[in-house]
């Protein structure tokens, strides 16, 4: 749930999402769910020349499984807290596995 928890804090931020088919989309992250499906608003496709069919798309819902990368605004990430959250998650996982 760490990623879900993490992405929830990024709602209404501008992110760039790279899909597994190399399309990169920049837009406002509207919401995310536990499958890391992503809703983007006001999107803008980088390299639009290659994907003209997306030129009229204004918002989209992206299935989480097709996402390769999410590029985040650095200032919006609390690194120390994220480190701690990661430690907790790891501890939880270890606890569950036992």
């Amino acid at each position: 749930m760490l990623f879900f928890s993490f992405f929830k804090t990024l709602t209404n931020q501008t992110v760039t999402i790279e899909l597994k088919n190399d399309i990169r989309i920049r837009g406002t992250l509207k919401s995310v769910d536990q499958y890391l499906n992503i809703k983007l608003d006001d999107i803008e496709v980088l390299d639009l020349v290659k994907y003209p069919h997306l030129s009229s798309v204004k918002n989209m819902f992206i299935r989480g499984s097709v996402v390769r990368y999410v590029m985040l605004p650095r200032s919006e990430v609390d690194v120390g807290l994220l480190e701690d959250a990661t430690r907790r998650e790891a501890a939880n996982q270890a606890g569950k596995a036992r």
Partner: peptide, 11 residues
């Protein structure tokens, strides 16, 4: 808090 630590604290 265990499940959603980052979000809880961050918000």
């Amino acid at each position: 808090l265990a499940e959603d630590f980052y979000y809880q604290v961050c918000s």
